[in-house]
Amino acid sequence: MDSSEGTGLGVAVLGHVLLFGGLSLGFLATPNPVSFEQQPIEVSLTDDVALVSASQVPDAEVPAARLAEEEGPVEHAVPEPVESEPEPVPKPRTEQPPAPTRAPTTRPQPQPTQPPRAAETTRRQPQQQPTRRDVRPTGRLDGLDVGRSDTASQSRSNTAPAATLGDREVASLIAEIRRQLKPHWSPPTGADADKLVTFLRVRLNRDGTIASRPVVIRTTGQTASNRGQVSLHQERAIRAVELAAPFRLPDQFYDAWKDFDISLDQRLAL
């Protein structure tokens, strides 16, 4: 090896170091080829799912203030219907009798009349014949249950109302579960293998992981020619569920999917 070969070796080593160093730096410097401009969002296809209350939800809002009835024109010609009740209770708010019993307090400006609260005191006054006014029907139904549900619910229960899912929502959840199973499900192939349907019972934790190994309930569609595939079919069905875990399902519907049965067949793999 003479001097020119020595020079060549030195230059070659240097060139390779520079080239690979530059390539490494270049790969580090180039923007990530598969980085996304927008971060992918997870899409759940259970948008049909909604809670349906199984019990009557007590109305938490205070009922709207009762509207006063409109006074209609007095019709004197109509005779008064005979009341069967001996002592009809007058409606307190419909009439505004003068209330002299309430003495004006020590306010500097005496007010002769008190707001409608004073009507309660008038109830105690014996009135043989209350003056009835004719009332024109307004079509408003509020106030019909006066005295019964005029206030908010008095229930002391503080538990959440029991909720169930409707059929459509359950179907939607199952569709979502099957969609997540689909990429992991590869049924065995062979004669009549497409007739096999394995039913599994799956129990999930709240975070979507499997609580216990899925249990095979049964496998239908067994024929003489696919007898040998049955155990493989069940095994792969269980494996598909295990691989698909953790399932990403809406947390608020955990009651609906914590324990479910699911069938796996050839069609799911298509």
């Binding site: 003479d2 020119s4 070969e5 020595g6 020079t7 060549g8 070796l9 030195g10 230059v11 070659a12 080593v13 060139g15 390779h16």
Partner: peptide, 21 residues
């Protein structure tokens, strides 16, 4: 292969120098 590449270039450069000379 990397050593072979280095050796190749060493030969190429050395040979080019020697041939020119």
């Amino acid at each position: 292969l990397l050593l072979a590449s280095i050796w190749t270039w060493a030969i190429i450069i050395g040979f080019a120098l020697r041939m020119g000379k």
